[in-house]
Amino acid sequence: MFYDKLCGGKKVIAIELDPPADVDIEKYIKSLKSLKELDVDAVTIADCPVGRARIDSSLMAYKIKNEVGLEPVVHLTCRDRNLNATKALLLGLNIENIRNLIVVTGDPIPTAEKVE
């Protein structure tokens, strides 16, 4: 549906929603269901935004697609993966029919403050 609308030149609505930072995802899923009711076409999921660990964007995409029915757009951050890990992730996403990706280098990982 999302892809068809894009190819057909129709207006699409995509919302970026960072994945949760902990395992309590009830509020997050509820928010996504509300977005679906508002006819949002897709949700983009950042991969460790601002270099901070959060639930993996590809795993969250799987859950969103299967439990909410929204089309996920996975941010794939190359900063954190070697070539084998990247290929493995792409293969896994493909078998789950998750094919919308935004490939980015990623934000720098925050460093510890200097002690003087």
Rank of each mutant, 00 (worst) to 15 (best):
A53R: 10
I15Y: 03
L91M: 13
D107P: 07
V74I: 04
S57C: 04
L91H: 14
F2H: 00
I64G: 14
P72H: 04
R99C: 13
I95R: 09
L89C: 07
D22Y: 11
D56Y: 09
A61T: 02
E16R: 05
N94V: 12
G92R: 06
L32H: 00
N100K: 06
D80A: 02
S34Y: 02
V43L: 09
V12H: 06
P19H: 01
A14V: 12
I15A: 02
N84F: 13
P110Q: 03
Y28S: 06
S31G: 13
S58Q: 06
Y28I: 02
L83I: 14
H75A: 00
V68Y: 06
P108C: 08
L59N: 05
A85S: 14
L6W: 05
P19N: 08
V115T: 06
L38I: 09
Y62M: 06
D39T: 02
I13T: 14
L83V: 15
G106T: 03
I98C: 03
R54P: 03
L38N: 12
G8W: 02
A53W: 10
V12M: 05
N94H: 15
K33F: 07
G8H: 00
M1F: 12
L93R: 04
G8N: 09
N94S: 15
M60Y: 04
V50S: 15
P108N: 10
V50P: 04
A21P: 07
R54H: 08
E37C: 10
G69D: 05
L6V: 15
D24S: 14
E37S: 14
M60T: 00
A46F: 01
I109V: 14
S34W: 02
A88C: 10
I25T: 07
I45G: 03
